[in-house]
Amino acid sequence: MGFFGFKNFDQLTETELTIYRFVANDIEKTAYMRVRDIAKEAHVSNTSVMRFVHKLGFNSFTEFKVSLHSAKLDQQKEQSDQSLSLHFIMKENFPQDIYEKLMVVADKIINADMVIYVGMGSSAALAEYASRQTAAIGINSFCIKDPFYPLSAQLQNTTNNVLITFSVSGRTPEIIGLLNDFVNNIDNTLVSITGNLESSLAKMCHYNLSYKTNEERIHHFYDMTTQVPATYLIENLLLRVRHLLQ
């Protein structure tokens, strides 16, 4: 569809198509041009411009200009919408072997005695959601949102646990401190879901489900970074767990 909603291009002459292409190529500029300016720039006559305007269904050049301004605003809005659109779930945002890693972790989960999800801030909400969904499919699970929770003491006499930690940066000191007790414990498998594969969290975990995203903060410390990639990973992981349990 053309920028005026015009569709019948076969009704336009070669000269009129030349004018149409000239206008469509830079609506923002031509919205402020006069008849003779368009004619000069498009290398056609003033009469050809007015014939083109009338053929498009406008009664006057002024009415045509109003439509141009409207088309310009629509174009700007479309460009703005595209800049704000979601581009998180794309192949380029994840490692090439992400689905193989998801399958390995899914297998660890179905063979675990307990699955513990860990997170702070917005990651805590995601950890809580993941724990609830895991419990719903019949797997022992709980969530840790308090980094000072005595998790090490609680798991002291347990074996075969999977700890899945959510952290965009992978650098949160409290989270690192919480997991540090389990790094050399063979009874616990550590998994990170993080946007930073080079982080301390990723390096201390046995398996990393990573993704690429830009960290965003407002007022210096409010984290506004999207959790869509992490949500996608946990949904995909639990889908694989359900298939393995069938």
Rank of each mutant, 00 (worst) to 15 (best):
F94P: 07
S192C: 11
G119D: 07
R132E: 14
A130S: 14
G177Y: 12
R242W: 09
C205N: 09
E128R: 14
I234M: 06
N196G: 01
C205M: 04
L73F: 02
L102Y: 11
Y32V: 06
S45Q: 03
H54E: 06
V23M: 03
N208S: 15
H69W: 01
L102N: 10
T225N: 09
I193P: 00
L237D: 15
H69G: 01
A230W: 04
E235S: 14
K77V: 05
P173Q: 06
F52N: 05
I175Q: 08
L151V: 13
F166A: 00
I176R: 01
F22P: 00
K77Y: 01
R51F: 00
G2R: 13
M1V: 12
I19D: 01
M224A: 05
F94H: 10
I175S: 05
Q96G: 07
S169E: 07
I110P: 03
I164N: 05
S45K: 02
I186C: 08
L190G: 09
E63R: 02
A230V: 05
I38T: 04
A71D: 09
A136I: 07
L245V: 11
I175F: 01
V105C: 13
Y149S: 11
F3M: 10
S85I: 13
D113K: 06
M103S: 14
P147M: 08
I234T: 09
E78Q: 11
Y211A: 01
I137C: 04
E128I: 10
A202G: 08
S210L: 01
T13D: 09
G170T: 05
S192A: 15
F58V: 00
T18Y: 08
K91P: 01
E235L: 12
F9P: 09
G2D: 13
T225S: 13
P173K: 06
N25L: 11
F88Y: 12
L245G: 12
